[in-house]
């Protein structure tokens, strides 16, 4: 474990906790894309298949449980909770899951480190995580306004992945044989996807104006 990875995990944890608390306290999910939240729940479900078979560390297991519980409860709140679901804007959140899930699944079938069910699922979850934010970014562009918490959510998600890139660089130089192209490339693609959002987020924060993403 290195400081970059710990900071990355904590930032990632913050992003889901901030979102869950927002939805729980103000009983609203305005501006949040349910599609993205469902994709993230799928990412964790396919990423952590080994939670009961391979014990890595207490930290690892606890964090996996927190991510699984928080992502599924966010989806539950947005779909089932009688008050929260009313603020879900399903007419705007129309990104079709399959457009992301199928290509990631196909890609994982061809590009993976070992052709086993667990490995393909793990690779699928990496590719899916890279693109899972797209429905949220599309929704932000459509609704054009962004309340601060949604901005913070996307910002923390991007920051977590950027910290992970520093972690991979650190591990590459400090651990022999630590080479994982698949992880690195999908993580880089994911961070680049956030890059343009970051640019507009910083500008709006600096000029203290509401965030306006390009049409």
């Amino acid at each position: 474990m290195n400081i970059f990875r710990l900071a990355g995990d904590m930032t990632h944890l913050m992003s889901v906790i901030v979102l869950l608390l927002k939805i729980h306290t103000i009983k609203s999910c305005a501006g949040i894309s349910l599609k993205t939240q469902e994709l993230y729940a799928l990412v964790f479900a396919t990423r952590y298949l080994d939670i009961f078979t391979d014990f890595i560390s207490l930290y690892n297991t606890i964090m996996k449980l927190i991510f699984l519980a928080s992502s599924f409860s966010i989806v539950w709140y947005m779909r089932q909770h009688k008050i929260v679901r009313r603020s879900y804007d399903k007419d705007q959140d129309t990104f079709r899951h399959l457009f992301l899930i199928l290509p990631c699944l196909l890609l994982a079938l061809f590009i993976n480190e070992k052709f086993t069910f667990k490995e393909v699922m793990w690779t699928f979850s990496l590719f899916l995580e890279a693109v899972a934010i797209l429905p949220q970014l599309v929704l932000l562009q459509r609704t054009r306004n962004i309340d601060n918490l949604t901005g913070q959510y996307v910002f923390l998600l991007g920051a977590y992945r950027a910290l992970y890139i520093l972690n991979w660089i650190y591990r590459y130089f400090t651990e022999p044989h630590y080479v994982h192209w698949i992880t690195w490339i999908s993580g880089l693609v994911q961070t680049l996807l956030y890059a343009d959002f970051f640019y507009y987020y910083f500008n709006s924060w600096k000029n203290n104006v509401k965030l306006q993403l390009p049409a």
Binding site: N60, M63, W122, Y178, H180
Partner: peptide, 10 residues
């Protein structure tokens, strides 16, 4: 090492 052992990241 087999790729499994290095799945120590979240």
């Amino acid at each position: 090492p087999s790729s499994d052992q290095t799945k120590d990241e979240l």
